[in-house]
Design a protein around this nucleic acid. Structure first.
Lengths: 194, 194
DNA sequence: TTGTAGTTTAACAAAAATGTTAAACATAAT
DNA sequence: ATTATGTTTAACATTTTTGTTAAACTACAA
């Protein structure tokens, strides 16, 4: 049987990803996505059967991609300090590309009463232990390791979620904002690690 | 003419506020809100004419309330350090009550191409100058004052936006999470101010 | 060339959400 | 008690979004 693969299925997924996670239209319709992809809306149903299935697949793929990237950092046999450095680079680059991904996850969370996957729970649990160890060695300020993690992710994620507001607030364009975000990588490290 | 005022109009607004900003159902329908308020959906149209007008009013009232609270902090004739302290208290208490308010603003921003009100722009401009001054006095670490502001608001807002994920991630209940958030007030001050 | 199977489209159907109307209801003033 | 007026409700209409179907289209192979 001829597998023709016109790339349409992937195009729809990529477009949905862009609309949700980059553009931030959290309640885009199938028509919105089809228009943005330049295809007939019916193709969404042809390839994915329903809107919900498309959304589910897009979210799952994004989660997997992120998970893979973080895993490579967390499992690396390197010093904690170096790990934090790499984590900031990896996460910030992702957050620059997909600033609204976490927001999408939160809203999806509320609709479907999802739970955090064990994979993530375990990864975080191990990292919390490393944080605690680093604190006991006096290398970072002592506090609840969960607060440390929240600080780190807050500093990385929030300025990107609020990009549109900040650009308007500070009267700056995309290029300048991107520069600010790149500068943040070092700045966050300095704030966290001292 | 008899102004009867059964409180229904306010009830609908308060309920919408709760659903959007506290519960975080960013795309709740008029039916959702009517159900939560325990009133007939038609009353939404009776009091507000349209769904959009209700949403607009709710957002505007929330903005005004926040603006008022922040203004009282920013315009106070007190030392910068004290100002930061108060800002954290005021903002965190609001964020605990309405964790999704900022997220709602962001998504509304994208739909309507709004702009940050001049009132807010001016307030921030003045505060940025104060931050710069404090840095020049060597009282806080030197950096782009905008980064300082982003740090501050990130640390306050993000953990509340991601409440549902964090509760699942750390296996904790509302009470424990609230405690973490209360502890953050001092912790954020210590991180920012040194 | 013709048949096959995947792909695309338009027309239609169904469901969900919003908006309108008229009548029922309730309360305060006359 | 009656009237007037604001409030609430149910039934209906409209719009928006989603899902289905059958036919048209296209590339490839026999």
């Amino acid at each position: 049987m001829a597998q023709r693969d016109t790339g349409t299925e992937q195009l729809i997924k990529d477009t949905a990803k862009r609309i949700f996670f980059s553009v931030g239209k959290l309640h885009a319709t199938t028509q919105d996505i089809a228009d943005a992809a330049g295809v007939n809306r019916t193709l969404v149903n042809y390839y994915f059967r329903s809107r919900d299935i498309l959304f589910e697949q897009v979210a799952e793929e994004a989660r997997a991609e992120m998970s893979e990237q973080l895993e490579s950092v967390f499992s690396a046999k390197i010093e904690f300090k170096e790990k934090v450095q790499r984590l900031i680079t990896v996460f910030m680059d992702q957050a620059i590309k997909f600033p609204y991904r976490e927001m999408y996850v939160v809203t999806a969370f509320k609709r479907t009463d999802k739970t955090v996957p064990d994979e993530k729970k375990n990864r975080i649990k191990k990292f919390l232990a490393e944080i605690k160890e680093e604190m006991e060695l006096g290398r970072i300020k002592k506090m609840d390791p969960r607060q440390f993690l929240m600080n780190l992710f807050s500093l990385m994620a929030y300025p990107l979620i609020t990009t549109c507001i900040n650009k308007s607030l500070y009267n700056i364009n995309d290029k300048e904002y991107l520069k600010l975000m790149q500068e943040r990588k070092q700045l966050i490290f300095d704030m966290i690690y001292q």
